[in-house]
Design a protein around this nucleic acid. Structure first.
Lengths: 208, 208
DNA sequence: ACCTGAACACCGTTCAAGT
DNA sequence: ACCTGAACACCGTTCAAGT
C-alpha cells in the first residue's frame, strides 16, 4: 500500500509552485483556491494559514515570483553588459510563466522584486551609468513590452482574468515552448528581435 | 415623476462603456456580470443576448476596444512621423483605461484591433519603411512596456484579476489622472520618457 | 501550529418563461 | 427580439472545531 502520511507540510513555496503550474497550464481564471487545494492534497482553507490575505496575497506572491531575478555583480563589467544580463534574465523569468504575465505587467513591484530593481540600479550606477534609475525604468519597459508581444504572438491566448482556452492543448511553459511551427529553431526570430531591440535601447541610454 | 421607460435598449456599445467604467473605477476583479447588469439597469442575464459568449466575449471586447486606434493616412508624412502618431495614439488609449490594461497586454489582437495593426503596417510601408511588420511589433512592444511601467508607477494598483484596492479612492481614468502629486504638471516626466524612448526606437528602426 | 467542515454571500451560465 | 426569474454548480472567505 502507498505511504499515506508524510504529506510534505505545505509551505508558501509549495503553494506558489502549484499555483504557477495551474496558471501556466490552464490559465489564471482557472486558478482557484479550491483547485489549488486539490493540487496540494489539502482543503482550500488550509492555504489561508500560509497566505493570510488569501487569494490577493497569492496573486501578489505570483507577480513577485516571476519578476524577481538576480544577477551577481561583476565589478569588471561595463554598464551595457550589466544591463544585458538583467534584461535577459527578466525576459526569461517572464516567459517561463505566461499564465501570470498579466499580474507581472500590472502589479507594482514589491518585496523581493523591488529589491531586485534596487540591486539592478545599484549595479548600473556602479558600472558608471549616470541616471541608473531612469535606465532601469526604460529597460523594464522594454522587457515587459517585448515579452507581452512574444506571448501574444505565441498564441498562448491566456487572458489575465478571462481565458479563452477551454481545455485547449496549451504548450508547456518555458521559453522552449514558444517555438515556431517548424520545430527546429526555438522562436529564434523572437530572440533576435529582443537582442536587436536591446542594443537599440542601450544606444538610446548612452549619455549624450 | 421621473420617466420610467425609455430605458435605452441596451447595446454592445453601452455594455462595453459601462464595463470600462467599472473596471477603471473598481478594478477588473470587481467587474461582474451581475454588477454590470445593475449599472445598466438590467438583469445580468440580459447581457448574454448581446454578448453570446458571456464574460469571455466581454473581456475580448474590452481588450479590443482599448487597443483599437486610428490614424488617418497622410501621404506626405515620413515613416517616422507616421510611427509617432500611431505610438502616441496607442499610448493614450491604453492609459485611458488602466483597469483593463492587463487584458490589453496579454490578449492577442483581434477584430478591429487587428485591422488597426494592418492599417499601421500599410501606412508605414507606404511611407517608405522596409520591414514595416517588424517595425509595428517593435513599436507595439515599446508602447505596451511604457504604459505598463507608467501604470505601475502611478500606483493604480489594479491587479488584472485580483486587485488590492478595497474601495480605495482611485483616480478617475484618463492620462490626466496620472498626474504627479504637485498637481501642476501631468506626469510630464512620463511623457518625456516616452518621447525620448520613442525617438530611440525610431533610430533603431532606421535601415542600416 | 496546522488543518478541516460547515456555512455564507457571491459568482457565471443554463433554460424555460414572459412580453 | 429582448429581457426576466429561478436554478445549478462553483467561487472566496469566516469561523468554530478538531488534532
Amino acid at each position: 500500500m502507498p505511504a499515506k502520511r508524510p504529506p510534505v507540510p505545505l509551505s508558501r513555496e509549495r503553494i506558489i509552485e502549484a499555483a504557477l503550474h495551474i496558471a501556466d497550464g490552464q490559465g489564471l481564471r482557472r486558478l482557484t483556491m479550491r483547485r489549488l487545494g486539490d493540487a496540494l492534497q489539502v482543503e482550500a482553507m488550509a492555504i489561508y494559514h500560509h497566505l493570510p490575505r488569501g487569494k490577493e496575497a497569492l496573486m501578489d506572491a505570483l507577480a513577485e515570483h516571476v519578476t524577481t531575478v538576480a544577477v551577481e555583480p561583476s565589478g569588471a563589467a561595463s554598464w551595457q553588459e550589466v544591463a544585458r544580463a538583467w534584461a535577459r534574465a527578466a525576459r526569461t523569468a517572464l516567459l517561463d510563466h505566461p499564465g501570470v504575465l498579466a499580474l507581472a505587467l500590472t502589479k507594482p513591484p514589491r518585496g523581493t522584486a523591488l529589491m531586485a530593481i534596487r540591486d539592478q540600479t545599484e549595479q548600473l550606477a556602479e558600472a558608471g551609468l549616470d541616471d541608473a534609475a531612469r535606465a532601469v525604468r526604460t529597460l523594464r519597459a522594454f522587457v515587459m513590452g517585448s515579452v507581452a508581444v512574444e506571448i501574444q504572438r505565441s498564441g498562448w491566448a491566456a487572458g489575465p482574468d478571462g481565458d479563452e482556452e477551454d481545455a485547449l492543448p496549451l504548450p508547456e511553459p518555458g521559453p522552449a515552448a514558444l517555438s515556431g511551427p517548424g520545430g527546429a529553431e526555438p522562436a529564434e526570430e523572437a530572440v533576435d528581435a529582443f537582442e536587436r531591440g536591446l542594443e537599440a535601447v542601450l544606444r538610446g541610454l548612452a549619455p549624450a
